[in-house]
Amino acid sequence: MVGQAEAVTAGLLVIGDEILSGRTKDRNIGYIAEYLTALGIDLSEVRVVPDIEDEIVAALNALRSRYTYVFTTGGIGPTHDDITADAVAKAFGVTIDVDPRARAMLLERIPEADLNEARLRMARIPAGAALVPNPVSKAPGFWIGNVIVMAGVPTIMQAMLDEVAPKLTTGVRMLSQTVPAHAKEGDIGGPLKEVALAHPGVTIGSYPFMAEDGRPNTNLVVRSRDPDQLAAAVAAVEAMVAQVRAQLAASR
Results as ranks from 00 to 15, higher is better:
K25F: 13
V98N: 06
T95G: 14
V2K: 14
V237A: 01
K138V: 05
Y207H: 12
L168N: 11
G40P: 09
E45I: 10
H182V: 00
V195M: 02
F92L: 08
G189V: 13
T68F: 09
T73G: 02
L106S: 00
K193M: 10
E108V: 11
E112H: 12
A246I: 11
I110R: 10
V147E: 04
H80S: 15
E108K: 15
I148E: 00
P180M: 02
E34A: 14
M210N: 13
A10N: 12
F142P: 03
S206P: 06
I15C: 10
R101Q: 07
N28W: 07
G189R: 15
F92I: 01
V98K: 06
Y35Q: 13
A58P: 01
I52G: 10
A58K: 06
I125E: 03
K167L: 14
P135F: 06
P191H: 15
A10T: 13
P191K: 14
P133A: 01
T73E: 02
V48S: 10
V46G: 11
V172Q: 07
P78A: 04
V244I: 02
V237M: 09
R101E: 10
Q177L: 09
N146W: 03
V241E: 12
A33F: 07
V149N: 01
V172Y: 10
E108P: 03
G145P: 01
D26P: 05
V202G: 12
V57K: 01
G190P: 08
I32F: 00
A233I: 06
I83N: 00
A233L: 04
P133H: 01
L197I: 09
P154E: 03
R245Y: 02
S206E: 07
L36I: 05
E117K: 15
V221K: 05
D17Q: 07
N61E: 15
R64H: 06
